[in-house]
């Protein structure tokens, strides 16, 4: 026995979803992390708490509210319909949106920690050498905080691959669009196809172990997660 065609389709879909979500999260999470690391605003606490919410909320809570918000009677659903985009639940892009929320803290927090660890000094020195803000970011912050970005990307990717509850709540189990590996494993178990479930599940264990191994071997100082 090996992977069925449906299993392979689920694996491909999962990798596509996780890659896309990682890219979106790096683009979206970096300014948030930057702001959280630098600001003295009284909003730092509340914003940081909102970003961290998915760490503690059960996926069912997030899934339920996404289903209500993105649905035809929810504000976001009415907005996407007004834009002509239709409704997000039961679509690949719906999963992207959900996963971005769900994996946000795993990307923001390592970057924020790395930027905080830099301190102000390298940036002030760069500024006295006439580096503009963008220049300072790309030639000073990014290289110095590289381990943080690396950790963020790997955790964001791995956490999206490991997502289950939220996908189950808003996915609708559509082959090629929303049936990711974790859902496929669940289906195999429910259908009493334990052999096929083992193949996929063991692959997930090996994959997750390798990801964390890479993370901890290449990046020994970032073990906080």
């Amino acid at each position: 026995m090996g992977f069925s065609e449906a299993d392979l389709q689920a694996i491909g879909l999962t990798l596509r979803l996780a890659s896309l979500v990682t890219v979106v999260l790096l683009i979206l999470g970096t300014p948030i992390a930057w702001w959280l690391a630098r600001t003295r605003s009284r909003w730092k606490g509340p914003v940081g708490a909102v970003v961290a919410l998915p760490l503690v909320l059960p996926p069912t809570v997030l899934g339920l509210y996404l289903l209500l918000l993105l649905g035809p009677n929810g504000p976001v659903g009415q907005f996407t319909q007004w834009l002509g985009l239709g409704l997000l639940p039961f679509t690949f892009w719906g999963l992207v949106v959900a996963s971005v929320f769900y994996s946000l803290p795993f990307v923001v927090q390592p970057i924020q920690n790395a930027i905080e660890a830099l301190g102000k000094r390298p940036l002030e020195v760069a500024a006295t050498l006439r580096a503009g803000p963008w220049d300072r970011f790309f030639t000073v912050v990014v290289p110095l905080a590289k381990p943080g970005f690396f950790t963020a990307a790997i955790l964001g990717f791995a956490h999206t691959v490991g997502e289950f509850g939220v996908v189950l709540m808003i996915g609708g189990n559509i082959p090629g669009a929303t049936r990711v590996v974790s859902v496929q494993i669940y289906d195999h178990v429910e259908a009493m196809e334990y052999g096929q479930a083992h193949w996929l599940a063991a692959t997930m264990v090996v994959f997750s172990f390798l990801v964390l191994l890479v993370l901890y071997s290449l990046n020994p100082n970032q073990r906080r997660f």
């Binding site: 649905g71 009677n73 409704l87 189950l168 808003i170 609708g172 189990n173 289906d187």
Partner: peptide, 20 residues
């Protein structure tokens, strides 16, 4: 046009929220 709930309770949830 089919979407699947993992069980009958979730299927009901898809319909009751108007998503299907």
């Amino acid at each position: 046009k089919l979407v699947q709930g993992e069980n009958i309770a979730q299927t009901y949830q898809f319909v009751s929220t108007g998503n299907a």
